[in-house]
């Protein structure tokens, strides 16, 4: 009888041991810092980028350049910028400026990202107009921050995806 009791105790202890191994030892700890940084990175990057003044374009802000590019996309923008000895329209300038900006930030930090500036179609039959893209589209999980920007008669959106 005592032996049976002992056997039950051993079985119970083994079960408890299994539970502890599964839910305590093998449990992955939450990475609070990584999560916090990723959520701050996307939002802060877009807000900061939009406020930045471009001395090549008479100190116009990036937001103003993007709006100009969107409003006059057929002309590649009306604001002219002086960059590396040549005149560039705002859309062209933005491509180079963003390439440089992302190279010095996300690519240096080895953070996968995808950035796009687009306008949603006025009617369902028209496709979305993408004004600018940078990086590679995320395949798995991602954090997305979308910043709307008003333009003449509509709204354009800046989307920054941080791939996990």
């Amino acid at each position: 009888m005592e032996l049976m009791g002992l056997a039950i105790v051993v079985i119970l202890l083994s079960l408890a041991f299994l539970f502890v191994v599964r839910f305590v030892i093998l449990n992955e700890p939450a990475d609070a810092r990584q999560s916090f940084q990723e959520s701050e990175l996307a939002a802060n990057f877009l807000n900061t980028m939009l406020e930045t003044n471009a001395p090549e374009c008479s100190d116009a802000t990036m937001a103003a350049l993007i709006q100009d590019c969107a409003n006059y996309y057929d002309l590649q923008g009306r604001i002219t910028c002086q960059s590396q000895g040549s005149n560039l329209q705002s859309c062209e300038f933005l491509k180079f400026a963003h390439q440089d900006l992302f190279a010095r930030t996300f690519e240096t930090w080895k953070v996968k990202y995808y950035f796009e500036v687009y306008r949603n179609p006025q009617s369902p039959s028209t496709s979305r107009l993408t004004l600018l893209t940078q990086g590679q589209a995320c395949t798995g999980n991602r954090r997305l921050k979308v910043q709307p920007l008003p333009v003449a008669g509509s709204t354009i959106y800046l989307g920054l995806h941080i791939c996990s």
């Binding site: 990175l41 980028m49 930090w109």
Partner: peptide, 16 residues
């Protein structure tokens, strides 16, 4: 790494 705006009050311009 945290992106921040750097504001120069002398020229009233903002850098990335």
């Amino acid at each position: 790494f945290f992106p921040v705006a750097i504001f120069d009050p002398a020229s009233s311009t903002t850098a990335f």
